[in-house]
Design a protein around this nucleic acid. Sequence first.
DNA 1: CCAAAAGTGTTCACCGTACACCCATGA
DNA 2: TCATGGGTGTACGGTGAACACTTTTGG
Lengths: 228, 228
Amino acid sequence: MRAPEQTFSYRYPHPAVTTDVVVFTIRDGRLCTLLVKRANAPYQGSWALPGGFLDIDEDLDACAERELAEETGLTDVYLEQLFTFGRTDRDPRERVISVTYYALVPQHALSTPRAASDAAAVGWFAFEDLPELAFDHAEIIDMAHRRLVAKLDYSTIAFQFMPEAFTLSELQCVYESLLNQPLDKRNFRKRILSLDLIEETGCQRRTGKHRPAREYRVKHPDRVEIIK
Amino acid sequence: MRAPEQTFSYRYPHPAVTTDVVVFTIRDGRLCTLLVKRANAPYQGSWALPGGFLDIDEDLDACAERELAEETGLTDVYLEQLFTFGRTDRDPRERVISVTYYALVPQHALSTPRAASDAAAVGWFAFEDLPELAFDHAEIIDMAHRRLVAKLDYSTIAFQFMPEAFTLSELQCVYESLLNQPLDKRNFRKRILSLDLIEETGCQRRTGKHRPAREYRVKHPDRVEIIK
DNA sequence: CCAAAAGTGTTCACCGTACACCCATGA
DNA sequence: TCATGGGTGTACGGTGAACACTTTTGG
């Protein structure tokens, strides 16, 4: 622990730097975002993105991962830098530059995230029904959403939402949630299979009183992001 | 001016924040980047991206614009945030987070950029033949280039390289420089005109001993970036 | 045998690509 | 008249979109 009276001096004023993370998942066919309830001022009691101040000897990505783990318990997520927000008045305490990230986690990766450290509570919120948010976090989520939808077109980012084994119907449901429109089943399957990225596991999924679905897995989990 | 002995103290260490800008243009059918020769340590005498420290009450975009104007004389350029680089060892002086931008300027916008402030010299360098660069600036330029080429596919960003009036051959030359491959003239013209973004000025361009070319202009300069 | 979701092919329109010749000008 | 870059149309193949019925299971 650092002695509370210690200070750090500079010849020129330095802004504070934080990372904030927009975590997306799909729950029950709805795009959801992970928010934490702020335990401290400012915006005490408001919902906000998980995130916090950069340690002076810590890489930006590491900071995002650490804050996410500390505040929500999430680890090993797909993480990508989004944008850096720096409006001079975005934090009432001091000048704060926020390097933002978005993360994608598989369905049901963490049904009940745990609150910790600066967070009084943690919860998933449907993207279509977000509460009032602290700081400029609504703007950040909006940009993350637009980036996510844009990347659906020219990347295979949607696979990041899938657990290890999944059915084509589940994958289609993810696409439909993100695009907010129904897709044709035959065309969807043809397109996905033509990517040659997934293979049958050989298992079947029995859910309900109907025909079981084939299970698929990603062929090369390390190379999922490559395909344009 | 700030009194030289004044200091600014914080309870936690704060990183410094800079902006750096990758300026692209097309000169003689070659993609070029604007670099400044560093007048001060570290990397004194090395070529580097124009950029510098963020003022504490200055927006990030404004900082990029200011540094660009101060060090190179360039103003009113197309500017877009690229990525934020923050490796802990990227600057030997102190921890520095660099919010990077890329800028596109029309051909011949500034034949002879002027050096000023921290820059001992300024010059255009062919992208294919860059000198050794300070800090992690080679990595930044590389990312800017990849972003630029990627955006050619799904945006009309290339128009940012054009002066107010231009010919289709000039525009094609820009695309060919960026893609580093020749394009079919008829297909190119068909594609560009079908965007319905440009119109004939009515003037002609006479260069050399051959048929004059029609001049075009962008119909709605404010809306160029919209088309997907 | 009924309800519910899984699974499967073909047709058509459009778009990107390939490709070769005439035109206008200055020297 | 010749050299130089400007300007033009068509044919083909591949890809994305529309579209309906059969299969398998549990109850």
